[in-house]
Design a protein around this nucleic acid. Structure first.
Length: 275
DNA sequence: CACGAGACCTGTTCGC
DNA sequence: TGCGAACAGGTCTCGT
């Protein structure tokens, strides 16, 4: 489900709390309930259970699509993958059907990791870099300049769509924001990374950042029943709009399959050109 | 190195 | 109405 903007919004919500829910930082974990042990990527579930007990969550951050929880001892990472969501809830309130991993706090609250498809992952690490170190740059960081992006693109001879989905290349983009960014830039998803002209690289760099920022401004995208609260789904240019008119030129949006992912594009605004 | 296929899971929607 | 196929915001591993 969630890509950079959605994960960022979830992190913010947990960090700041709401009128009804307290901020997550400061909460001390007294117990973790592991109802789907394969959620726990590392260490082994029994070790995880033992080490997480008594830890205090100090902050909630984001890196790529990971939620990062610095603890008083070590760091916990959560990846929501396709169907995951995290929600603070009052102790004793009716549990969700898909709650897989639940953290119970000293105060009368619990953090529920619900995940219908069970693809999500939880890590407990002494050095979070063991996992986060493999990620590519943050697209919204000041340090992520068009120049650096250009240099990175030139390192590969890959199709843009799978390259932009590759978290080692750039962190945080998923199927929605890649398609939206490519349309905004007017570039076909099958173009090779090393075939872009200078102005195209710049357009893509700008488009990626603009798409993510627009997503953030609308609190992310809420499709189906997972992740509520966002409204970016109402502003999709191409994603899941096959057959509908392109917002720029009226041409019907096309759906193709690239790297086993549904891929949406406007054949007129995103010509295939010289690949 | 780059790519496609298959796995991992469950739920919803579509077509006959 | 029923049933199987296709599809879903992600990522890993394997074979070519």
């Amino acid at each position: 489900m969630p890509e950079l903007p959605e994960v960022e919004c979830i992190a913010r919500g947990l960090r700041e709390g709401t009128q009804a829910l307290p901020p997550l930082p400061g909460q001390r974990i007294v117990r973790a309930s592991l109802r789907w042990q394969r959620h726990i990527a590392q260490p082994p579930p029994n070790t995880f259970r033992r080490r997480i007990r008594g830890r205090t969550i100090l902050d909630v951050r984001r890196r790529g699509k990971f939620l990062v929880f610095p603890l008083d001892e070590g760091t916990m990472l959560i990846h929501l993958r396709m169907s995951g969501d995290l929600e603070m809830a009052p102790r004793g309130s009716p549990p969700g059907l898909y709650d897989r991993t639940v953290f119970f706090f000293e105060a009368p609250w619990e953090l529920r990791f619900s995940d219908a498809r069970k693809f999500g992952k939880v890590h407990l690490l002494s050095d979070p870099q063991d996992v986060l170190g493999a990620l590519g740059p943050e697209p919204l960081d000041d340090g992520f300049t068009a120049k650096k992006f250009a240099a990175r693109l030139a390192q590969y001879r890959r199709m843009l769509k799978p390259l932009l989905l590759d978290q080692h290349f750039i962190a945080g983009l998923g199927n929605i924001y890649v398609d939206e960014s490519l349309h905004r830039a007017g570039i076909h998803p099958l173009r090779r990374s090393d075939s872009l002209q200078v102005d195209e690289v710049h357009a893509l760099w700008r488009s990626i950042r603009a798409s993510l920022r627009t997503g953030l401004r609308h609190n992310g995208a809420s499709i189906d029943w997972v992740y509520r609260g966002g409204s970016f789904q109402n502003r999709f240019r191409v994603y899941q709009r096959a057959g509908k008119p392109c917002s720029r030129c009226i041409t019907p949006i096309e759906r193709i399959v690239v790297a086993q992912r549904g891929t949406y594009l406007c054949p007129r605004c995103q010509p295939e050109k010289a690949r």
